[in-house]
Computed example of a mutant assay.
Amino acid sequence: MLLDYGYFNIFQFINPYSRDKLVKWLRDEVAAVRRDYPGSPVSLVAHSLGTFLVARLIEEETAFSFDTVLFSGSIVNTDYDWSKYLDSYRVKYVANYMAKKDIWPALASYIVKGAGRAGVDGFESTHVSLFQHLHSKYGHSDYFNPHTFKELWLPKLVIPQRQVIETLSGLLVQAKTLLKTSPESGDCHVRVRMFYNAGDTTFRQFPGMHAATSKEVRYSEEELDYALTRESALGAVATCPPTFQAAFTTTPTEWSALDESQPTNGRGDLIAAVSARLFSISQPDAPAIGMVALEVLEAGDHNHAKQAVGAKPLVPKLSEYVVTACVGIQALFPEN
């Protein structure tokens, strides 16, 4: 449902009474949606001034709760306390899409009290259910394109974000705990991410659905933008471990433990990789609708070969963990 507050000029923007009037308008509109669709989860997608209004609404209207809140071109202050609302489940998941070439958040922060640069600098708050992405070439409204709507925003609005990221974070803890049982691989880093089927036999990284045990091994922008195809999976090129072939098979899982003789299949610091496909519960033999991939990466200043030897016997157990996580995630997907 599109909510349009109409034309709002710069003089109205700097007038606090005009802004208060818009917050009241938004409060009434959301109340009407909740009344017309009782019990249904409500998500909000806001741009520019809309992000300011939504942030005010969440602060002031404690009776409202939201599933996903998605911002682009945000003019909200960077110190907005998302953790407060996420921890209390007032909001279940937040996605903030930033643009490096966006000049309006900086301008808003100078002329409007309480406005800020979250659309460029991001929010200071850190939370497992707060996702932030900076596009280095985008301006204020450049996220408004078919690719963004179809492949970035729509999936975020139909999948229970918080439950998925909590499952992936739990998977990380399990994997790290298991690796610590081996003296050789105990210091290894672990990271995990989820792909979805974008159609045309192409899988893409699900925005925000990734986690890592260390800042050192967080996924790069290149890795997160990587398009996984059958050809790239079979060739194990770029950032694609060979286990990603699981996305294109009907077998429950495939995995591969890498040793010192194969250090360049995807990444030079890759020790082991495990993946399992996500499939439709009603159509288990159909092509995969997604995939979860877990990677074990060497710790700096450690011997790659020793870590690989230590991790290799643990790979089957890691595979069990990934499959179990996939079963839980599959139950969250709406059936087609």
Rank of each mutant, 00 (worst) to 15 (best):
M1L: 10
D4A: 13
F8S: 08
N9V: 09
Y17D: 14
Y17S: 14
Y17V: 11
R19Y: 05
D20V: 00
D20H: 12
K21W: 10
R27G: 00
A32N: 08
R34G: 09
L44N: 07
V45S: 06
A46H: 05
T51M: 08
V54T: 13
I58Y: 06
I58N: 05
I58T: 07
E59C: 09
F64L: 10
T68G: 01
S72D: 13
Y80H: 11
Y80N: 11
K84R: 15
Y89T: 05
A95C: 10
N96F: 02
M98H: 03
M98P: 01
K101L: 10
I103W: 06
L107Q: 04
Y110T: 12
V112N: 13
G114Y: 11
T126Q: 15
H127F: 10
S129I: 01
L130M: 09
L130C: 10
Q132H: 06
H133T: 02
D142P: 14
P146I: 06
H147Q: 15
L152F: 08
W153N: 07
L154V: 09
L157Y: 07
V164L: 07
E166Q: 12
Q174D: 10
L178N: 08
S185Q: 01
S185K: 00
G186N: 12
R193C: 08
M194Y: 02
T201P: 00
R204K: 14
R204P: 03
M209R: 02
T213A: 01
R218F: 01
R218I: 04
Y219I: 00
Y219V: 00
E221K: 10
E222W: 00
Y226V: 02
Y226N: 12
A227S: 09
L228D: 01
E231S: 11
S232P: 06
V237F: 02
P242Q: 11
P242G: 15
T243Y: 01
F244N: 13
Q245N: 12
T249Y: 09
T251D: 14
T253H: 03
L258R: 07
P263L: 08
P263W: 07
P263V: 14
T264M: 14
T264R: 13
N265W: 08
N265L: 13
R267Y: 11
R267V: 04
L270T: 04
A272N: 05
A272C: 10
A273Q: 03
A276Q: 00
A276M: 03
A276S: 15
A276P: 00
L278I: 12
S280D: 15
D285E: 14
P287F: 02
E295Q: 15
A299R: 12
D301V: 02
D301N: 12
N303S: 15
H304L: 15
H304P: 03
K306E: 14
K306R: 14
A308T: 09
A308M: 03
G310N: 05
K312S: 12
P313E: 02
L314A: 01
V315D: 05
P316C: 06
K317D: 09
V322F: 04
V327I: 13
I329S: 01
A331M: 11
L332V: 08
N336I: 09
